[in-house]
């Protein structure tokens, strides 16, 4: 590699990392947390079969899982303004990714809650706990452990999917790589550099997953 190329890699490193910190990771974190709250609510509506809400939840999961994320992004950012609903790029991306995470993760959370034996609910009830107390103190802590691996999977997917936000002009990591490529004409170099940064982020997330699994499984024989 000649000096010019090395210089391009070095010069572009900080702008890319900055974009990753400012947009990629922020977008992923905010959407994941909001999406997880939504997912737990949707999962509970479905586990408890709450009338009307249950049908709405089923419809929501069906639509989100059955349509491409890119199309959802475009509908929210480019489509909704024509009916008078306008978002800035970043909030539009947060909405799209949150809705997406909410749908996919609700199935993970639902399966995790249902994997906890009915005897646990009964034990909590027999001690005089309300349904909310049983859920919060007994069921969710156990469900959390079961759902760490699949939820980590979804978070890692999300981090990479945030690159789609470049299409609605969010200046995230991939957008920056694209912009620098446009002025330097080094697509292989810069897209590879972007890929390495994504890989580094996901490697850290993998490590965090292991730590969380260890922490949550201290009570278990498996």
């Amino acid at each position: 590699m000649d000096d010019r190329k090395i210089q391009i890699v070095i010069d572009s490193l900080w702008p890319m990392i900055k974009a990753a910190l400012q947009y990629t990771i922020t977008l992923a974190l905010i959407s994941f947390v909001l999406g997880l709250i939504l997912a737990v609510l949707v999962a509970l509506v479905r586990v408890w079969k709450i009338p009307v809400l249950n049908q709405i939840a089923i419809f929501y999961v069906w639509v989100i899982r059955g349509t491409p994320l890119l199309v959802q992004l475009f509908i929210i950012f480019f489509g909704l303004p024509s009916v008078g609903i306008e978002f800035d790029p970043f909030p539009a991306a947060v909405i799209a990714f949150t809705l997406n995470m909410g749908a996919y993760n609700s199935e993970i959370v639902r399966a995790a809650i249902q994997s906890i034996s009915n005897g646990q609910w009964e034990a909590a009830y027999s001690l005089g706990m309300t349904r909310g107390q049983a859920l919060w103190r007994v069921i969710l802590p156990q469900a959390a452990r079961v759902s760490v691996p699949p939820l980590s999977n979804s978070f890692i997917s999300l981090v990479k999917d945030t690159s789609l936000a470049y299409t609605i002009t969010v200046v995230e990591l991939f957008q920056v790589a694209k912009q620098i490529t446009a002025t330097t004409y080094e697509p292989l170099l810069l897209y590879t550099e972007a890929a390495v940064i994504y890989l580094a982020i996901c490697t850290i997330l993998n490590a965090l997953q292991s730590v969380m699994e260890k922490r949550l499984s201290r009570f278990s024989a498996q």
Partner: peptide, 28 residues
């Protein structure tokens, strides 16, 4: 006003013996 003992124990697996016994006293 009742306490129940189950055939399959149904202890809370994520809590220690002590925490199992403390739980309802604190929460309920």
């Amino acid at each position: 006003s009742t306490g129940m003992v189950f055939q399959s124990y149904n202890l809370f697996p994520h809590k220690t013996a002590l925490e199992n016994v403390m739980e309802a006293q604190i929460v309920v």
